[in-house]
């Protein structure tokens, strides 16, 4: 496009950077204005962590349940599958039958794992 200048694809993405910068600037401005305009007249109790009115005791960052970790693992597995699916959806029409078969096997194998996880109670929250 411009001889030996940067690849034109750069110009396509430049808009994202512009918008990100603008949004971040706006967020920073809001924080700054709020910090400047707001009064400062708190008591010590104002700064206590929220605990429904009871003085807090013990470590406020307790260990969390393993369930969240398992949810994140499950999410990553399906997220990876989805990442493949994005690319697959774009090229599907080039040879529909072959691509259907390829993804059918892929989803089928994962489906076995999904059924196993279901049977083992990985999707139970009680």
């Amino acid at each position: 496009m411009r001889g030996d200048n940067p690849p034109p694809v750069f110009e396509t993405y430049f808009g994202l950077l512009v918008l990100l910068t603008l949004s971040a600037g706006l967020a920073a401005a809001l924080l700054a204005v709020s910090a400047v305009l707001g009064p400062r007249r708190h008591e010590s109790a104002t700064l206590d962590p929220y605990e429904c009115g009871v003085p807090s005791a013990g470590d406020l960052r307790r260990r969390t349940s393993v369930r969240y970790y398992v949810t994140a693992v499950l999410f990553i597995l399906f997220d990876l599958e989805v990442a493949f699916l994005w690319a697959w959806a774009v090229v599907f029409h080039e040879s529909p039958l072959e691509n259907l078969a390829a993804m059918g096997v892929f989803i089928g194998v994962l489906g076995v794992g999904y059924a196993y996880a279901w049977a083992k109670g990985a999707f139970e929250w009680d």
Partner: peptide, 22 residues
Amino acid sequence: SRSRFPLLGALRSAAQLVSYEV
């Protein structure tokens, strides 16, 4: 926030967000 309820709430919300992303 270093406070009990926000931490619990954040974990729940985060798990909710990733669960519905798929």
